[in-house]
Structures are given as C-alpha cells and as structure tokens.
Nucleic acid binder design. Structure first.
Lengths: 253, 253
DNA sequence: CTAATTTGTCTATTGATATAGACAACCGTA
DNA sequence: TACGGTTGTCTATATCAATAGACAAATTAG
C-alpha cells in the first residue's frame, strides 16, 4: 500500500464527501505525492478521479485554502503551500529538541500551567506512590516554527521534585529541570501509543480542525536504576507529526 | 486530559453530528468509561450532554448497534457489547503472538498473497538493494479472536530469501520462516509511526467502518550484525489496537 | 490577438442531516 | 395494576451536502 493512491470515498458514512476528499489531499501532500508549490490536478480531473461533482471538489479545496494548506489562483491552478510533516523521535532516550535538528528553524517548549494535585490511580501506580499523594502536574506545549507539534501533561512526585515547575518555566526543558534534582540521565521505561479523533481540547491546544487525528503517547520515564520519576501523556497532531522509533539511541551528555 | 470526557462536538465540520457522537461513545468505551455490558446513559441524557436533539443521538446509537458495538433494548436501555482494545507490543524484538498472550484466546497470521516484484526506491533503500532488484512481497493479516488486528506488507530480498513465501504459508510465522534461512534472531532497526483515516483498502482489509482511524508503522528488521533483511508496512485498526512500546524487551530463543 | 485551460460565481434541484413534537411499545418496580 | 422511565416510530420543517448546468474572469499557450 505504499505509493499508490486509493482515491476512493464512501458515501452515507456520516463524513461529508468534501471532507473526505480534503483529507485525502492532505494525506497525499503529507506522503509526498505533491511537492511544495506543486500544482494540484484541475478541479475537473479531481472530480472525475473521485467520482463526484466539481462543486464537491471545490468545497474540499475551499476548506484547505481556509486552512492555509492550498492557494487557488484563478486561471492558473491550485497550489500546495504546506510543508512536510515533522518526524518526531521517540525511544528510550527521547528528548524534545534533540531529534528535530535540521527539520525546523525554531523549536521550544512552553510551560502552560502547573499545579499540585492528589495522584490519580493511574499516576500513583506509574510513579510508585500511594494513591492521593501529592504530585506536580506540568502542562506543556511543544512548538516548531510557530506551529504546535505536541501537547503534554507530565506528573512528578511533589515531595521529590518540589519546585520543578519553576525550573521548567525557567529552562524550558525537562532534561535541564531534572538535572537540578540530581538526575543527569534517565530512560523511557514504557510508551503506550494510540490514535483517536481530536476532541475539543485538542482542537484548541494543537490548533486543529474538527475531524483531525491525534497521536497519543502515555509514557513513564525512569532513572538508570529503574526508579520511576515521570509519568506523562502527550498528544501530537497526526497531520503535522509522525513518530519515529529508533533502535540506535544516542546517549545525551 | 486523562479520565475526563470532553463531550463536545463541532458543527459545520463536514462530519455529521451523529458520527461525531458515535465516535465519542466508541472512544469512551475504549478508554474504559463504560464496562462491558454496562448501560449507556438514556438517549435524552446524551442529547442534553452533547447539546443535540434526541434523534441525532439515536442516529449515532443506531450506527453503533449496526456495528455490533451496542445493543438497544426497548424499555430497558442501551448496553455495551464490545470488548477492550488489544495492546499490541512493538519494540526492538516485536513478534506477533508473543506479546498478546493472555489478552485473547486465539490469534494467528494469515498469508493473503505473495509476489515477486522489482524493488521500489523506498524498498531498495531500506534493504540495501539496487533499485529494481527482485524482492518478494508478502501480504499478511493478523487475527485475534476472529477479528483482524493488523494488515501488513513485507518485502524481502528475493535472491537471499527465495521460497520464504512458501515457508510463511506453512508456518504462519515470520520468525519461523526466517529460521529456515539461518536467521535465528533479528532486531527491529527502525519504526516510523503515523496515523490517518482508513482508506477504502483498510475498510476491507481490517473490517472497518468509514471514518475509522488506522495506525501505520513502517519498519526495518535487521540481523544482529545490522544487515537489513525485511522492510514492512503494517496497518492497525486504532479502535481495536493500541501499540505498546517497551524498553525491556526480552530475547527470544 | 485568439483559443484553450482553469478557477470563480450564480441558479436550481435533490437527498441527507438535524431539529421539534407527539405518542406508542416495552420494561421494571412500587 | 399503575406508574415512571426508556426505546421505537411517525410527521413536519429547516438547513447542509451534493449534483447539474451555464457563464464570467483570469491565465497561459499558440
């Protein structure tokens, strides 16, 4: 199924034809079927390929123009604006910015909010704490070239990591913040990955359109001797990000 | 964002309200908000929660009843039928059936088709072959309890692995088939992960409904000394499968 | 300049989607 | 048995989605 365009749509599915076509065009761009600034096939050609009326194709294109993905020029054609998806590294030594070098010109993490709360069952289990013990929650957003590429919530033991919220706000880096607590290296113990449609929160947090897909990772980081230090849930916009798992992780200084 | 239901929908998004509600109910079930055989809230309650008419909720429920996810009983209520998602292991030593033990009663791989074809650019690069060199492609489907949980295409060097299609048909296992070629152990070198809406092929291959989400992995397996032996693209139905990444992989005999 | 190609706009019609209200059928329980 | 709560069915109406055709406006090729 590599390199071949399905180019088929389903009627009476509850998803409007124009949206299905818009999604397929988005996918084709992401997969590399169209280069940047390349011209899309004419509306009539697309209408024939998908077996729909030209106006339906126009609705799809209008939505993508609205999203800043395409630019339509009367008499000339419709052209691709958007760039490729970001390939986001994930593995035993995942760090936010390390693996994105060369793909974007600018990237950083923003601390949106922090709070102390009692540990839920899930968080307590992951961190090896008693249920209801105080944990610090950090809400962060990762951005690259001004576009959100991740949205995460991370939990830490409040007793051991008191003040990590301030460190995070100052340094903008989990790795740097953990160093202040004597943790110079850590590993990703486990990652559970799933995908779903974006909910209302995702639409706001990741600047998505309704119907978009988010990748969700739930992970536990541990010290080198296996002590859990961080539990986190991250969301990535599938249209802008792919996750790259690599076996040959390099150690960080 | 853990454990809280967004319960909001978007109008004029190109996705019918009844489908958005159906997807949210599916998600809620998958996340565990409803136990198996549990009753859904009454239609009126759901209508109020989503801010829509009762008939719209009924359309969503009707779709899920059609899919075998819910069962509606007049006078009593609407009940959950479907089971939880499968947690599919993926990592340096991913094998199909090893990590699913205990989650299902029956699981196996079916070889759907095999062919010899010239290597595409992508396959040639991954396997370290010249472009156009003969490669064997195996099309497989993974099943658990009678439901498809994966659909994969795998490519092997046709010169080195001549006859692997027959071995695969006979043993139903990639690991066992590779043993016949003197490969007793291998590693996953890289995995690239993405998600998208199911296309027409996915709907057929994975028995999905239009609008469903598929997880896609593109991976390269290598021998212990780093020689690439297998390139594959796998698709998983996100509604039935989650991918579990683990750092502590155990060696296989 | 002319013709062909392509996007933009308009009108009209049909079917799907969503809302609204009313009432029937069925279940469990007081 | 009677009642409250629930799903099932019907009618009616308004809006969105999709099709159909025609023509205008802009660009490019000749």
């Amino acid at each position: 199924m590599i390199g071949q365009q399905a180019a088929s749509i389903e009627r009476r599915s509850g998803v409007a034809l124009w949206r299905q076509i818009a999604d397929q065009i988005l996918h084709a761009i992401a997969v590399g079927d169209f280069a940047e600034n390349a011209a899309l096939p004419p509306e009539m050609a697309l209408a024939e390929r998908y077996g729909v009326n030209r106006h339906t194709v126009r609705s799809a294109i209008a939505a993508l123009v609205q999203d800043g993905v395409l630019r339509a020029e009367q008499g000339r054609g419709t052209f691709v604006l958007s760039r490729k998806r970001l390939s986001y590294p994930i593995g035993a030594r995942t760090r936010f910015s390390a693996g994105l070098q060369g793909q974007t010109s600018e990237r950083h993490i923003v601390l949106l909010a922090s709070s102390v709360e009692p540990a839920s069952r899930r968080v307590a289990e992951a961190l090896g704490l008693a249920r209801g013990a105080d944990v610090i929650r950090l809400e962060t957003r990762g951005e690259a070239d001004g576009h959100p590429v991740s949205r995460a919530a991370a939990w830490f033991d409040a007793r051991r990591f008191a003040g990590i919220d301030a460190a995070m706000a100052e340094t903008g880096s989990v790795t740097a913040s953990l160093k202040r607590f004597g943790i110079n290296d850590y590993l990703r113990q486990s990652t559970v990955l799933s995908a779903r449609h974006a909910d209302a929160a995702d639409l706001v947090d990741l600047d998505l359109q309704p119907g978009a897909i988010v990748l969700v990772t739930i992970a536990v980081n541990v010290t080198l001797d296996g002590q859990p230090i961080q539990f986190s849930e991250s969301r990535f916009p599938a249209e802008r990000v792919e996750l790259r798992l690599s076996a040959n992780d390099q150690a960080m200084p």
